[in-house]
Design a protein around this nucleic acid. Structure first.
Lengths: 153, 153
DNA sequence: TGATTGTCTACTAATTTTATAGACAATAAG
DNA sequence: CTTATTGTCTATAAAATTAGTAGACAATCA
């Protein structure tokens, strides 16, 4: 299959997890997030801007500025991040709820078997990404880490 | 998201459902399958060839030739069709079982939260496409069709 | 032998992804 | 109020992928 999650979405998820791991009130600069996660800085600029415009991040310009979450990590769904950066999650437009569009080659939507199974796929994907939050991702990355990982060289 | 199911996969599914609706022993020519499903003929050539090489279809050249299923529709999984035409179903290579590949920007696969949630998505997608057969698609397209559809003008 | 139908390679066009460049805007510090 | 810093935004370009086409070739049947 064609990639569902492009670099844009991957970088965005990594970045928002990075921000979710900051202490309360703390901010991080784009350059720092980019360097620590091996993300091209200019590309990350555009990504964080999208997430900010979607209401998930807040930002501050000037010296000491940077980015932070705009709301609690547990209230930010992975699906919202992906939709903000990549658009609808449906594998094909005719199976999308938010951006339905019929195929030009489709004779009858009601009887199209491709649409039927891809609707099921859409629901299955949504079932995962809309029931997983950024807070869950933070917890998993910690849970999977070796003990004392922070203290190794 | 980037499209998961490209035209290639969509056309392939439509074509194999078309073939599954033939009567036992019957074959269909590429030109006919293409015309009836609004698929570019030359493009469909390549698609059916892929499905044939994957062992799902059999073909016969020359006058009276054509394509037919190589095995019962209930034994052909939608997932197999998609994998044959589009490759692995995982949204990202690091979450693939059949074609795993680590991201270049990834520091540690074990703690990567993106990989974690995308593995769940992969499993969710596989849960649908590997539990749906071409026979199921045929049945749905019939079940959803209006009564006597075959007799309307 | 000739018409028909699938097989296969090579190629091109269109679209999407992945960035990069550079001007601009806001803010803090001196 | 000037300067350095950091985010904002538009425009553009390179690379990769998808979508489709062209045309020669191979097998089969009448």
């Amino acid at each position: 299959m064609a990639p569902v999650l492009t670099n844009k979405g991957k970088y965005g998820l990594k970045a928002i997890v990075h921000l979710a791991r900051l202490e309360a009130g703390e901010t991080a600069q784009v350059a720092d997030v980019a360097q620590r996660n091996n993300i091209p800085k200019k590309f990350l600029d555009a990504i964080l801007l999208d997430l900010r415009n979607a209401g998930m991040l807040r930002s501050k310009k000037g010296p000491g500025g940077g980015y932070a979450l705009a709301k609690p990590a547990r209230s930010i769904k992975v699906g919202a991040v992906i939709r903000a950066l990549e658009g609808p999650i449906a594998p094909i437009a005719c199976a999308s709820r938010s951006a339905f569009r019929a195929c030009e080659d489709c004779g009858d939507i009601a009887t199209c078997p491709v649409r039927s199974v891809m609707s099921d796929v859409r629901d299955a994907i949504a079932g995962v990404v809309d029931n997983t939050t950024v807070a869950d991702l933070v917890q998993r990355s910690i849970a999977n880490a070796p003990v004392h990982a922070d203290y190794t060289i």
